[in-house]
Computed example of a mutant assay.
Amino acid sequence: MTDLPPALHLENRRQLPEDLRFLVRRYPRETWGSHANLDEMAQFWLQRHDMFRELGGMLRRGVDDYREGRLPPASFAQWFAPRLRFFLQQLHGHHQVEDLHYFPVFARAEPRLQRGFDILDSDHHIIHEALERNGERARELLLALRQDADRQRFAADAYAEENVRLVAMLARHLDDEEDLVIPLMLERGEDGFAG
């Protein structure tokens, strides 16, 4: 993990630094869908990111439904546990593949983006810690569902706060990662990466 200035920390930044955005300026988001080099790998990457966004939103809405009394505790637990487990496992696995394979390959293909991949790697460490906190708050919530209403409410509030924080960090990270990776894939094409 790289030491970053505070402005580049995941929870502080609004986008990647301008010097890392040269490819996304050449290939703005609105052109991605119609670009000839939007191959299977780039489409899969975007689909996985959309899945993480969707699951994070589903978990937030599910907790809101429980907190507002629209979902009884037993039904909530049955709905919540498998979705949370899938979300946490898939996100962890996705980051491992990126860190161990894709980011090194991409950085070799375009060395000017190395600092961007260092930033994303730093994000992964921060997100991993947030995933652990999220999992712990979720365990506490599931245990509290068998206790009195005050404990349920306290645990649901604690989980909701952690979930909002995680989803916000994840949204920033996914956008920044796409701004590095997708334009690079469009620039090189799927066959343009050795590694």
Score class of each variant (00 low, 15 high):
176 D>L: 01
110 E>M: 13
77 A>K: 05
68 E>Q: 09
150 D>S: 12
30 E>I: 01
95 H>D: 11
146 R>S: 11
83 R>Y: 07
180 L>D: 00
15 Q>H: 04
175 D>G: 08
138 A>H: 00
34 S>W: 03
15 Q>P: 00
163 N>G: 03
146 R>I: 02
90 Q>K: 13
169 M>W: 07
14 R>N: 02
6 P>Y: 10
16 L>W: 00
77 A>D: 06
18 E>Y: 09
7 A>T: 12
81 A>R: 07
18 E>W: 06
5 P>K: 15
140 E>V: 09
189 G>Y: 02
89 Q>E: 06
149 A>I: 05
36 A>E: 10
106 F>T: 03
155 A>I: 08
15 Q>I: 00
126 I>D: 01
15 Q>W: 00
61 R>G: 12
7 A>K: 07
143 L>E: 09
104 P>G: 06
169 M>S: 07
94 H>S: 11
69 G>E: 14
54 E>S: 15
82 P>W: 11
107 A>M: 02
61 R>D: 13
69 G>M: 15
144 A>T: 00
21 R>V: 04
161 E>A: 15
168 A>K: 05
53 R>C: 09
141 L>M: 04
174 L>C: 05
85 R>A: 15
81 A>G: 05
89 Q>M: 06
186 L>N: 02
65 D>W: 06
110 E>L: 11
189 G>Q: 00
177 E>W: 03
85 R>Q: 12
54 E>L: 15
185 M>E: 08
173 H>K: 03
74 A>C: 14
51 M>A: 15
93 G>I: 02
173 H>P: 07
69 G>D: 13
108 R>C: 12
5 P>G: 13
131 L>M: 13
15 Q>R: 04
171 A>D: 14
130 A>P: 03
66 Y>A: 10
